[in-house]
Amino acid sequence: MEKQVEAIVEWLRQQLKQSGAKGFVVGVSGGIDSAVVANLIKRAAPENSLGVLLPIYTKPEHMTDSQKVIEKCGIDSLTLDLTESHNVMYSYIQDQLKGKNEFNESTDQLAGANLRARLRMSALYTVATNYNYLVVGTDNAAEWYTGYFTKYGDGGVDILPIVDFTKSEVRELAKYLDVPEEVITKAPSADLWEDQTDEKEMGTTYDRIDAYLGGEEIPEKDKDIIELLHKRSAHKRDPLPQYKRKS
């Protein structure tokens, strides 16, 4: 892990040189992936790294975990509570759709959750522009393969330093980086709605996704779920379709 951390930190520094940016910003959620990234960018740019807490109806325990990560790795921080912004914007959109009798209750939870992720992305880029920083993503290999991220939300970033690492490898990185134990062991959650967890939403576990990505045999049911998630989310990873005009 020491060699891996050193290599990532050097890669991060190269990204700054190539882009002309001054530093890094990451959204800190209280989860293991953002905790690892916060530690990595702090090592890469000690004086020019920022962790941003972006609560939207966020449980106090998630905020507590976020603060523990911030304090332990010593990164500069900023808190932007977007709860009211989300409420005002989504309520307005809902009212307009209801006025046209076209409001779809079956997609209400997902639409509201995706708006949370996209508001957070917008806030991070606003902060990044202020400092001339790069927005650093927190997706790991399992999330990338299954598409477990919001398009133009938490998937809207400049660089992805841990996207080649499985969830189990991220846990090892977290232990090496001395991330708080309660953050390492908590159930992964994107904090998109009440009592939401990643594995409950995906229908499989990170351990099985990691095993599948490593070429191991897993139950057929889990294999089918993983491949379906991968297929459905291809549009998130592929370049945007572009019409080529006729000559």
Score class of each variant (00 low, 15 high):
residue 247 S to I: 11
residue 32 I to C: 00
residue 62 H to E: 14
residue 239 P to T: 02
residue 211 A to R: 13
residue 206 Y to G: 07
residue 12 L to G: 06
residue 195 D to W: 11
residue 12 L to Q: 01
residue 51 G to A: 15
residue 115 L to A: 15
residue 163 V to K: 11
residue 92 Y to V: 05
residue 164 D to H: 14
residue 1 M to K: 14
residue 153 G to S: 05
residue 58 T to D: 11
residue 183 V to D: 09
residue 230 H to I: 07
residue 102 E to V: 07
residue 247 S to G: 06
residue 54 L to T: 15
residue 191 D to P: 02
residue 72 K to P: 00
residue 141 A to V: 05
residue 47 E to Y: 06
residue 153 G to L: 00
residue 127 V to W: 10
residue 42 K to C: 04
residue 166 T to I: 04
residue 187 A to P: 01
residue 62 H to R: 03
residue 131 Y to A: 06
residue 169 E to D: 13
residue 180 P to T: 08
residue 88 V to Y: 10
residue 81 D to R: 13
residue 139 D to L: 12
residue 127 V to Q: 11
residue 231 K to A: 10
residue 77 S to P: 05
residue 238 D to T: 02
residue 34 S to P: 00
residue 227 E to P: 09
residue 149 F to R: 15
residue 37 V to E: 06
residue 23 G to Q: 13
residue 178 D to Y: 12
residue 176 Y to D: 03
residue 202 M to P: 05
residue 22 K to Q: 15
residue 238 D to E: 14
residue 142 A to P: 00
residue 14 Q to N: 15
residue 135 V to P: 11
residue 159 I to P: 06
residue 219 P to N: 10
residue 132 N to W: 11
residue 80 L to T: 02
residue 85 S to W: 04
residue 117 A to F: 14
residue 117 A to N: 03
residue 192 L to G: 14
residue 81 D to V: 11
residue 28 V to H: 03
residue 81 D to G: 09
residue 229 L to Q: 10
residue 55 P to N: 13
residue 16 L to Q: 02
residue 26 V to P: 06
residue 69 V to L: 05
residue 213 L to M: 04
residue 32 I to N: 10
residue 72 K to Q: 14
residue 11 W to H: 07
residue 96 Q to N: 06
residue 34 S to G: 00
residue 146 T to S: 13
residue 206 Y to H: 11
residue 245 R to W: 08
residue 219 P to K: 14
residue 182 E to C: 08
residue 181 E to S: 03
